[in-house]
Design a protein around this nucleic acid. Structure first.
Lengths: 180, 180
DNA sequence: GAAGTGTGTGAGTGCACACTTACAAACTAG
DNA sequence: CTAGTTTGTAAGTGTGCACTCACACACTTC
């Protein structure tokens, strides 16, 4: 055996997150994912249940990575107050999305929530992250809400490239946002 | 003449905003827009410079409507403090996106900013709205930033359908958000 | 060494869709 | 009433892409 199917699946998923992040669900041919993973298109279809199955699996790993990063961030502020923990989580998240793939994938996933299977995995992903943030930080509802609001602002900053715009309105929107 | 080209363009743009909002740029065939507008696909291509030209034009009208709504909201709080004006703008925006088309279109547009022409029109749209909010409300940078952060949170709430989720984490994220 | 199982692909198939072209009908100007 | 302009469409064309199938190679088991 050249490789186990499970190992291939992981390779393909990494390629898929990257590819879908850049061009989105509908504009990304699975040939592109296959090429990036170094295998044939046909085998991708054997490993996953269609393009949709691949996207959903990629979304799953995406949220898993985000949850793990936030969890690790929280560890670093263990014992601190709610705001300190939230801040540490935010910092860990900022580091994680420095390569932009995870952030852009979330944006792409949000854009195709008209497909029920995707809407479901997006909700499940945010449920996982949000409950963890809430439970682990012990922050108030309002604080948690603010945490996610500024996270979403980060999506806008990156997709619209606002950190490259030297005008006052863009400076106001990007001020103090970590590493977008 | 059955109709002027300019009138047709407006009809088509309204249909385009609706259609693109639902299924996004790549998954929306221009036949769908043409059908919704009640004309032939071929004529859409005569009225606009390709599918991309149509999308960009639709984005333009989208941000124009948003700016107009916020402007009208600001009028209602004329003479008030920064926070009152911001609040009135937020209320006007919340009313505007009750039908979801304008909100979803923004999400779709953000997802295809890998296409330079779309990135440009998105930036231009936010420039227009953000400068107006900043200038007209007289609010601080931080207040303006917060305004947009919670606006973006609204996108998440609607696309993921969080207002339909009766769990605590979802309640925390949606608390106090106006009419998503 | 034969039979089975898991890994992998080349070569299709069929369809959806962006965009074009040739043509027709309505209206206008003189 | 005719020549020109504008509004409008039916019927293509070509291409990209999701998905399939028949087939081949590697490895194991007995």
């Amino acid at each position: 055996m050249r490789s186990t199917a499970e190992a291939r699946r992981i390779t393909v998923l990494n390629a898929a997150v990257s590819a879908f992040a850049r061009t989105g669900f509908h504009a990304t041919p699975v040939t592109a994912v296959a090429a990036a993973a170094g295998i044939s298109e046909a085998y991708v279809f054997r490993l996953f249940a269609g393009k949709l199955g691949l996207f959903v699996a990629a979304a799953d790993t995406c949220f898993e990575r985000i949850a793990a990063a936030i969890e690790a961030g929280a560890e670093r502020a263990a014992g601190g107050g709610a705001e300190e923990i939230l801040d540490a989580m935010g910092g860990a998240y900022a580091e994680l999305i420095a390569d932009r793939d995870l952030l852009l994938f979330q944006v792409q996933a949000q854009a195709v929530t008209d497909i029920p299977e995707i809407a479901q995995v997006v909700r499940a992903g945010y449920r996982r992250v949000a409950t963890f943030v809430q439970d682990r930080s012990g922050a108030s509802d309002a604080q948690v809400q603010q945490f996610f609001a500024y996270g979403q602002l980060c999506h806008l900053i990156v997709t619209a490239g606002l950190d490259q715009v030297p005008e006052p309105w863009a400076r106001a929107l990007t001020a103090g946002i970590r590493h977008p």
